[in-house]
Write a protein that binds this DNA or RNA. Structure first.
Lengths: 115, 115
DNA sequence: CACAAGCCTGCACAGATATGCAGATGTCGA
DNA sequence: TCGACATCTGCATATCTGTGCAGGCTTGTG
């Protein structure tokens, strides 16, 4: 993160050192994107409620999630589809009912930190 | 969270105990909404990059944030407006430049936990 | 076999949002 | 005072996304 004088000309930074720190703080863009995706999943009240339920109430059926959260089972299914596709939750089929559980340890840790 | 038999009739829960746990896990809807809002702010790669920069690189000017993140200063301004409105960041004016800093301790803690 | 329960999906629609552009404001330097 | 610079804003647009409805699929039950 050291630059030769001529490169600095193009930058026009106000606080050069601060900008370098900022760039370092961002780090790998892929990592940022991955975390942003995770946060986006938690960023909708309905899904957050679902995840909180899944987090504490272990494997739980779709219709029970709908009961607990007050969301129509159609919407619950859609939400779970997203969470499944992102590897946040996993499904275990038991006859005609499907129980979901939280499998992403990062998300699990985040939910723990909510106090 | 105990129900008389007749109330259970309406529920049709699959795993009643699990549903109660789920409801407890959700807790106060306002708290859920507050956290969802926070997560939503972190849920966009650009804003997350901005917040990471603000988190480590202390008070930093808008144009420097634009430099570090590669986002046009117009978009940076818009993003900072949201973050300001939600009480996540604060601005300190110094002449014609404005430096922002992260002020929400909860968000700060989240960013720390990203490793 | 017929029916109901649990779950999933397609589709259409409404609301939210991120973004770029153009321009306004306020501030510093010559 | 004039121009350059830093920042902010309004507006128009395109995209995304959450939701409801209707219906389909699978599994268990009478």
């Amino acid at each position: 993160m050291h630059l030769v004088p001529e490169e600095r000309e193009h930058w026009r930074a106000i606080d050069e050192h601060t900008v370098c720190d900022a760039i370092d703080a961002i780090g790998d863009p892929e990592r940022v994107h991955a975390w942003a995706s995770r946060f986006a999943l938690l960023g909708e009240p309905g899904r957050l409620a679902l995840l909180l339920s899944l987090h504490r109430a272990g494997p739980i059926a779709v219709s029970d999630l709908a009961l607990a959260t007050g969301i129509r089972d159609s919407a619950v299914s859609q939400a779970l589809r997203l969470l499944r596709a992102s590897g946040t939750v996993a499904a275990e089929k038991d006859g005609r009912i499907v129980r979901y559980r939280l499998v992403d340890p990062q998300v699990s840790a985040l939910l723990d930190s909510l106090g």
